[in-house]
Design a protein around this nucleic acid. Structure first.
Length: 395
DNA sequence: TCATCTTACACGTTTGAAGCGT
DNA sequence: AACGCTTCAAACGTGTAAGATG
């Protein structure tokens, strides 16, 4: 996760950051005709990737208008896209989950240390040249110039947005990889982390709390590794992935959805050991002092069907939609995916690998383990990650 | 006083390593 | 020696709640 300036020092310090976006929804033109120049594809942020691309008409795929406010209306179906990669299309794999969150008003926790997005952006791509190599990037841009406030029932604008923060781009750790590799299985950005620390040294995406953001996915064709001559770019955004960044959840319905859907929050489900009843009981026991016998055994509760009955519809999230195997699941580790990171690729283009979370796998994933979807880095037995790049001084 | 942020905590999941058998 | 499978423990990712901050 690095700013392009870090990847390409030759750009110099004059590299322009995107200016604040004044005015509500200025990034979301209400009517988009063919040939429309995408206003907020942050060319300065991506121009190191875009430079060298042959001139191509930047057309949009007639996206529907965006919802007027988060959590008030269902999101449109089609992604908005900028194309100079003909035939390439992206679809949001976990769209239903995103829509569910969006219908309530998605909130993303941001912390000093960095917090993952949930749901994560998981996309399927088609139409790539199987032999060509591509980079997958993700960034997050402010939706408007407003700061938001939770008013008990809904989010409402509450003043002017904070000045725009340094732009950062998350580079998928598999980048660069062949089109065949990217098309084999969904591409997951679940390792992206969000932070509110403007001095963040880890390369996480920096956001302001209580602001509305829109993730974008960029696909860049690299004609040759380590070349400035890129073969084209396609940028996509899915309106249902819009969210408001928070340091603590404001909408209790979002909390419920996160707990129900995120496997890491399983401990907070109604039938888990960390449900409110159990927590309250633990606090009481603490106050009373230690007890000789374990009293947290399941089944001792008085509620029918277990200590804490589910109020969330039971099975809606029994299997984690984020982690569920997708059709065409990854090949076993004994058959490394083609086009994955190679030593040569890493040596030629090391910066592209630095989106990895600080530790690229250094050995093959063994069968029998529940490998995360689209393992970061994939099997790269001979690679050793370089230390993170120095972050630029903030103004 | 209020809204927002930070931190510690307990719990569940993920992941890497070791052990074992074939 | 190589491979596949299981087990284990540390690391990591969660939301919560209390306290701190402005």
């Amino acid at each position: 996760m690095y700013h392009p300036r870090e990847l390409y020092p030759s750009l110099g310090t004059g590299y322009r950051l995107g200016p604040p976006q004044p005015g509500a929804d200025s990034n979301f033109p209400p009517a988009l005709a063919e040939g429309y120049h995408y206003p907020d594809l942050d060319i300065p942020k991506l121009d190191c990737f875009l430079s060298g691309i042959e001139a191509a008409p930047r057309t949009l795929a007639a996206p529907p208008p965006l919802p007027p406010a988060l959590g008030t209306e269902p999101a449109p179906q089609a992604p908005e896209a900028l194309h100079s990669l003909p035939g390439v299309s992206l679809s949001l794999e976990n769209r239903e989950l995103w829509k569910e969150f969006n219908s309530v008003g998605t909130e993303m926790i941001i912390t000093k240390a960095g917090r993952r997005m949930f749901p994560a952006c998981r996309v399927s791509v088609t139409g790539l040249d199987p032999e060509a190599r591509y980079l997958f990037l993700l960034d997050v841009i402010p939706v408007d110039g407003a700061r938001y406030r939770w008013q008990g029932r809904r989010w409402e604008p509450s003043g002017k947005a904070e000045p725009r923060l340094p732009d950062r781009v998350y580079i998928h750790p598999d980048s660069p990889a062949t089109g065949a590799h990217w098309m084999r299985q969904p591409v997951s950005f679940h390792r992206v982390k969000l932070t509110n620390s403007t001095l963040d040294p880890h390369g996480h995406l920096i956001l302001h709390s209580m602001h509305k953001y829109q993730p974008r996915v960029h696909l860049v064709r690299a004609a040759q590794l380590c070349s400035q001559h890129w073969g084209g770019v396609a940028s996509f955004r899915f309106p249902e992935t819009m969210f408001i960044s928070v340091t603590a959840y404001q909408n209790p319905r979002i909390t419920q959805l996160k707990i129900a859907a995120n496997p890491f929050a399983k401990g907070f489900r109604e039938n888990g050991r960390n449900c409110k009843r159990e927590r309250d009981a633990r606090v009481k026991r603490k106050l009373r002092g230690p007890e000789p016998v374990a009293t947290e055994a399941y089944g001792s509760g008085d509620a029918p069907g277990g200590p804490c009955d589910s109020t969330l519809g039971g099975d809606i999230r029994e299997s984690d939609p984020e982690q569920a195997p997708a059709p065409g699941e990854a090949a076993p580790a004994s058959a490394p995916p083609c086009g994955g990171p190679s030593a040569e690729a890493y040596l030629l283009h090391p910066a592209a690998f630095h989106g990895a979370p600080g530790h690229l796998p250094t050995r093959q994933v063994r069968q029998g383990h529940k490998a995360g979807l689209f393992q970061a880095g994939g099997p790269t037995p001979i690679l050793t990650p370089l230390p993170p790049l120095q972050e630029p001084q903030l103004p």
